[in-house]
Amino acid sequence: MIEAVGLTKRYGDKTAVDGIDFQVQPGRVTGFLGPNGAGKSTTMRMIVGLDRPTAGTVTLNGKRYADLKAPLHEVGVLLDAKAVHTGRSAYNHLRALAATHGISKKRVDEVIALTGLESVARKRVGGFSLGMGQRLGMASALLGDPAILILDEPVNGLDPEGVIWVRTLSRHLASEGRTVFLSSHLMSEMAQTADQIIVLGRGKVIADAPVGDIIALAAGNSVRVRTPDATRFANLLSSKDVTITKTDPDLLVVNGLKAAHIGEIAAGSKIVLHELTPLAGSLEDAYLALTEDDVEYHATSVADETVPMEPVQ
């Protein structure tokens, strides 16, 4: 288990991580989401002792990272695919890391095979593609067969097969009772991989909930209603807890009422409905909704349009 208490990191005036508390539980995959500059990587670096917290603590199974007797066996880290000397071969890189803990060359060969690096293992890392660098990073993380895995953007630069591999592996490792903590910008990927999501915005935890709950946050209670009597029906439904958007002459998007309830009201008032569809958000919508106010670096939007929500499949 990873536990952060009041974890804070300041660089001069700038607060990168602002007194966050969270727990990452074993036996499941915990996703770490947040816009660029939200403090995800800083948090991960503090967990493994690379950055010193300005305040607060973070422990792994109750111990500070620096106090672990065998860090590679207890925690596997993929912080940055480029955390490798470019002049050394992948094999020698892993052998040097393994040597610190007396891990056998056999295990080095195993992780090379596991990450599909056999054909390039003897080549210098400087010539590696981003994807191969990520695989080497995964090989380093798995080297000590650790109980906790901390993976910063593990699928960044991987081909679709590699993405599926990381997903399958993460789920498999969690199913064995390990703690898997991974960050990603790919929301769809996170929706398929993670059980729990922690969302970080401007250095603060803005959500920490099971993935289903996070998606439900965005879904709200939107229902699409198509009726020839749109104006009259809108007046019927309106109350202070309900928002109604009329997008077409015959189309309403209703927020704050369940589809079944809307149907009952329509039946009671003898209004003909052509469509009644509950709308579900994706993790992407949830994430955007959550971090809307917490994005550090805003891109200027191309067109200020509302992206229509996808109907439930």
Binding site: G49, P71, L72, L79, T100, S140
Partner: peptide, 9 residues
């Protein structure tokens, strides 16, 4: 250095 210090903190 990050790999090094992750292995030997």
């Amino acid at each position: 250095i990050r790999s090094t210090f992750a292995a030997e903190p």
